[in-house]
């Protein structure tokens, strides 16, 4: 049966639900979204300016350009992966279009992301790297990352229904990616033959482009953008196809 209803209203309600549930029981509320990147920024800045001194200028801003997209990626991907299982009651009892579940979960993480983006921009202003016209690229980059994560989440969420270990694989992948994405080092120091690893990774592309925009006032490289668009939409399409294939069997397996 086709679900007939107001998709926009449904998505809005589910995103708000996720957000409210997450923050209602936290006395600091949205401040938690600031605390994690601030602490990480502090620790990494300490390590890489005092213990392993580096010549990277504006290191706090530099490292935050890595932390914010990376944090969003890992949190949104993991909560998206477990979303179908976490909402088993909904899947088993309400004939709501299933795609809505992982996508709203990822979108709920965007509220968290928005707070962190504000922090990032505030630190950029504070580092005497004020507004420049290249900032207009920022929404494009974030949108592409969200498309990418939605695709990945649909893929892993549907697999997770059948193989419950998937979430642990996703968790480990997050840890590995912290090192493979240039979060705390510059992509310039990567030897040429390893560059392709970075280039096909949308999270790395976002990090590299963010640094160009916020630190150097340059637009993102065209080749980076092309790859980012291609990979994000391909992953989204694959995620959607796999999800659609598997969703008729969710009911029996959760």
């Amino acid at each position: 049966m086709k679900w007939r209803g107001d998709y926009l209203y449904l998505v809005q309600n589910l995103v708000l639900k996720d957000f409210r549930v997450r923050y209602r029981n936290m006395s600091l509320g949205v401040l938690w979204s600031l605390l994690n990147p601030l602490v990480m920024m502090g620790v990494l800045t300490f390590v890489f300016t005092r213990i392993f001194p580096q010549s990277t200028p504006h290191f706090p801003l530099f490292v935050l350009c890595g932390m914010v997209p990376f944090n969003f990626f890992t949190i949104a991907w993991l909560s998206g992966t477990t979303s179908i299982i976490d909402n088993a009651g909904l899947i088993k009892r309400v004939p709501v279009p299933r795609e809505v579940v992982p996508i709203t979960t990822v979108l709920a993480c965007c509220i968290h992301l928005m707070v962190q983006i504000l922090l990032l921009l505030a630190v950029a202003m504070f580092s005497h790297k004020g507004f420049n016209p290249q900032w207009l690229w920022l929404p494009v980059l974030w949108l592409l990352e969200i498309v990418f994560v939605c695709g990945l989440a649909m893929f892993s969420a549907s697999i997770n229904v059948f193989v419950r270990d998937t979430r642990y694989i996703v968790e480990s992948a997050g840890l590995v990616l912290f090192w493979l994405v240039p979060v705390f080092y510059s992509s310039d120091i990567i030897p040429k033959r390893y560059i392709p690893i970075i280039e096909v990774n949308p999270v790395a592309a976002v990090v590299v482009s963010l640094r160009k925009i916020l630190l150097n006032g340059q637009p993102p490289a065209v080749s980076t953008l092309e790859r980012l668009i291609a990979v994000s939409f391909t992953v989204f399409a694959i995620g959607l196809i796999v999800f659609r294939r598997l969703k008729p069997r969710f009911y029996e397996h959760i």
Binding site: W3, R4, G5, D6, Y9, L10, L90, V94, V96
Partner: peptide
């Protein structure tokens, strides 16, 4: 209500 398909 949104889950059951009601509009805003």
């Amino acid at each position: 209500a949104a889950l059951l398909g009601l509009a805003r």
